[in-house]
């Protein structure tokens, strides 16, 4: 279980004003379930996501992984924690280094967990199949691949090292309907197989209702309701 406990984040703007992006947010993310998070733009969803995978330090509050406090982990321990919580962003184009092929990016992910080449190619085939990512695109550069395919690849990469939790920050909002449906189905099938806990951020109510077990609503940095 990944838990956020009374997490707040305060930004200091360049004008010197303080801005509370996230106020006192607590949530539990269970393995094998999909938790939705909805809200208007600028309500702090993305900030919460970055805090949950510890890419951004919270101002106050705690992050617990299986009831162990990880909010003050540094260096090695932090890397360890980050590997168990992966994140996929909205924009697929910036998710891949333009100078490397998709295959290279996959190997980068594999190397992070010290996989052998055999395990890596096995995992690659398996994930590409479940996300329906065509293997013939592996040796292409990101600029030569369409946004929809890149987003599939981004999800494949995030699942490469078998994380326990996956945070999806509006993964399909830049894609068309059919691709959105294909990708969402792919993710759901993986959740069921690998029992990964997913935090799915979106502002499409219909989509949230279709994919999530539970939905949290956020407004002005606070959680306002659950369903």
């Amino acid at each position: 279980m990944l838990t956020l406990e009374n997490v707040s984040k305060e930004f200091v703007l360049s004008s010197g004003r303080r801005f509370n992006a996230v106020k006192d947010v607590s949530l539990d993310l269970n393995k094998g379930s999909v938790l939705g998070m909805m809200g208007d733009s600028g309500c702090g969803k993305s900030t919460t996501a970055l805090i949950a995978c510890r890419l951004l330090n919270q101002t106050s509050g705690k992050i617990l992984l299986d009831n162990m406090d990880v909010s003050s982990h540094r260096r090695k321990a932090l890397s360890q924690f980050r590997r168990s919580v992966q994140i996929v962003f909205q924009d697929p184009i910036s998710a891949f280094d333009p100078l490397h092929t998709i295959r290279w990016s996959f190997s980068e992910a594999a190397a992070a967990s010290g996989m052998t080449a055999e395990v890596q190619s096995e995992r690659q085939d398996e994930l590409c199949q479940s996300m329906d990512f065509p293997l013939c695109l592996l040796d292409r550069f990101p600029s030569e691949v369409s946004g929809g395919e890149l987003q599939r690849a981004a999800i494949v990469r995030s699942l490469f090292i078998k994380p326990d939790y996956l945070i999806l920050d509006e993964p399909t909002s830049m894609l068309d309907l059919s691709t959105q449906a294909q990708i969402s189905r792919g993710i759901l099938s993986i959740v069921q197989n690998d029992s990964i806990g997913i935090l799915w951020i979106t502002h499409d109510e219909a989509l949230a209702k279709a994919v999530c077990d539970r939905i949290l609503y956020m407004k002005d940095g606070m959680l306002v309701q659950q369903s």
């Binding site: 309907l177 059919s178 959105q180 449906a181 969402s184 189905r185 989509l207 994919v211």
Partner: peptide, 18 residues
């Protein structure tokens, strides 16, 4: 029809293939 069916509120069934 395929596009409509792939809307989340209409079953989210994608159009097969690319």
């Amino acid at each position: 029809k395929g596009l409509i069916r792939s809307m989340p509120e209409r079953g989210m069934t994608p159009i097969p293939r690319r």
